[in-house]
Computed example of a mutant assay.
Amino acid sequence: MSRPVILTCALTGGAALSGKNPAVPVTPAEIAQQAVDAAKAGATIAHIHVREPGTGAPSMRIDLYSEVVDRIRQADCGILINLTTGPGARFIPGNDDPRIGDPASTLAVWQKRVEHIEALRPDICSLDVGSMNFGQHVFINTPADLKKMAEAIRKVNVKPEMETFELGHIRLAKHLIEQGLIEAPPLFQICLGIPWGAPATPEVMMAMRNELPGGAEWAAFGIGAMQFPMVAQAVLLGGHVRVGLEDNLYLRRGMPAPHNAALVERAVTIIEQLDRNVASPGEARAILKLGQPEDVRFMPTAGA
């Protein structure tokens, strides 16, 4: 019998998306409610960014993360919580001096990027393994900072989900594993279609999967119109999947998704049509060797 497929829902992301689809959640209450609804639709994991409630701009405020996590834990829906560590890596060179960042840069010290992980101790957190041109800015994740972030994440017993956007990122991730910084089984997320990373094609997904170390768990996603084709491709190649408004705003061509749960429901249908089952949170914990959740639902968190 084939293993169940872990289904992640990436709820909101950090790009300016709410103006393109008003269903993108912004406030902590909206983000948490869409996580709960995604769980009811079949999602196993909620991947979470936070936004400034008044503007919808991406945020790194720990009080916003705390409120989202508290609301999800109090709902007791079982979904695994995956907090991003991606914010704080964006750099845009200044026009007058490229060594000095443009005001739109968000580059932050590595400690700032993991402080919410240390305080809130989610089940999983993303770890973007490598630097790249990311749209119109540079996404900076140096090997030295990644080592420090991985060490901090390991100390609080959180599973890092290593996000890889090209083959070189997998090489760097293997180096972190060889250094003993990543607990077994390593968890990879193959991210496809992001400008200017690896394209969302079956050939590229297979090539990246083939470079993963033995025993690794992996998932993959494509952005935009390639979201659902990449769901099917990942399942066929033996991986897990991710959907959500962070990566794609449409349920079908010309039809904006009304909420994240609708994207989850369509992914569940694809998985089941391929004669696979979606993993429950308990099954995902067993696959990823996470153990059982601690009783932290009503512990005071940072800023409380």
Results as ranks from 00 to 15, higher is better:
2 S>W: 12
4 P>I: 07
7 L>N: 00
8 T>E: 13
8 T>G: 07
8 T>R: 03
19 G>L: 06
20 K>T: 04
21 N>G: 00
25 P>D: 03
27 T>Q: 13
28 P>C: 02
28 P>I: 06
30 E>M: 14
34 Q>E: 12
36 V>M: 05
36 V>N: 07
38 A>N: 06
43 A>E: 08
50 V>L: 09
53 P>T: 04
53 P>Y: 05
64 L>A: 09
65 Y>F: 04
65 Y>V: 05
67 E>A: 03
67 E>F: 03
71 R>V: 10
74 Q>A: 14
79 I>L: 00
85 T>Q: 04
88 G>P: 06
89 A>Y: 12
91 F>V: 08
94 G>Q: 06
95 N>W: 11
98 P>D: 12
98 P>Q: 05
101 G>L: 04
104 A>N: 13
106 T>G: 02
109 V>F: 10
113 R>D: 06
115 E>Q: 10
116 H>W: 03
118 E>A: 11
121 R>C: 00
125 C>W: 00
126 S>C: 06
128 D>Q: 04
128 D>A: 12
129 V>F: 10
131 S>T: 06
133 N>V: 14
135 G>T: 04
136 Q>W: 03
137 H>S: 15
138 V>E: 13
140 I>V: 15
142 T>S: 15
145 D>I: 10
146 L>D: 14
148 K>F: 15
151 E>P: 10
154 R>D: 14
154 R>P: 13
155 K>A: 13
157 N>L: 02
158 V>A: 02
159 K>L: 09
163 E>M: 04
163 E>Q: 15
164 T>Y: 06
168 G>F: 05
169 H>N: 13
182 I>L: 11
182 I>A: 05
182 I>Y: 11
183 E>C: 15
183 E>V: 15
184 A>T: 14
188 F>V: 06
195 P>L: 09
195 P>D: 08
196 W>H: 14
200 A>L: 15
200 A>M: 13
203 E>V: 09
204 V>Q: 11
207 A>Y: 11
209 R>H: 12
219 A>D: 08
220 A>Y: 01
223 I>G: 01
225 A>Q: 11
228 F>G: 12
230 M>A: 02
231 V>E: 08
233 Q>H: 11
233 Q>A: 08
234 A>E: 11
236 L>F: 05
241 V>M: 01
241 V>T: 04
242 R>P: 01
243 V>W: 00
245 L>Y: 06
250 Y>M: 10
252 R>K: 09
253 R>L: 02
258 P>M: 03
259 H>M: 07
260 N>M: 08
261 A>L: 08
269 T>E: 13
270 I>M: 05
274 L>Q: 14
275 D>W: 09
277 N>F: 08
278 V>C: 10
283 E>T: 00
283 E>N: 05
286 A>L: 04
287 I>N: 02
290 L>G: 07
293 P>C: 05
295 D>Q: 09
297 R>A: 14
298 F>R: 07
299 M>Q: 11
302 A>C: 04
303 G>P: 12
